[in-house]
Amino acid sequence: MNSFFKSVFTITIITVLAGIMLTLSYFFTKDKIAYQERQEILNAFKSILPYHNNEPDKEYEIINNQKIFIAKDNGTITGYAVNVINTQGYGGAISILTGTDSNGVVSGVAVIYHSETPGLGDKITSKSFLDLFKGLTINDKIAVKKDGGTIEQFSGATISPRAVAAGVKDSLKVINGLVGK
């Protein structure tokens, strides 16, 4: 019994010490991590939205529980962006950020994270694929060619592009609710 108590005691001490160390390191790094994460999303906004000088992650409206980020140039609205997570890919969730100009025409699409198959499905992050969405609106048929749409899927992978197309389409629907107003 004594040795049992000693074992439990040792493990408890080690676990508590580890917990304290981790909490300390968490508090030392959390601001910097939050900064990096924010920087990533701001850079993504820069790459997909028309020129803006505000911080879209701080100016947004919520429609149907979906945040619509608003890009402004000196107070004039220049575009909108919506981030959706589509789980229809092969490798789990794909996070898609879609940007439009103030009329709801797609100005750019970015994939924030994904885990599609390297070499095949991960071509969804390539510029040549994402640029296919530019200029489309809610009235276009946004789907891969196999489904009768305009987006060229690449050889060996239909599922991943299809998931991205679905994500863009969902985003445009949300944005359209705001543009129409």
Binding site: S3, T10, I11, A18, L22, K32, I33
Partner: peptide, 25 residues
């Protein structure tokens, strides 16, 4: 008798610290 769990806790602790540091920097 508890050395393996103890080592795993210590290793997991270092891994998480490295994880946070890499994410920050």
């Amino acid at each position: 008798n508890v050395r393996i769990p103890a080592y795993i806790v210590i290793i997991a602790c270092f891994v998480t610290i490295i994880d946070q540091m890499m994410k920050a920097n």
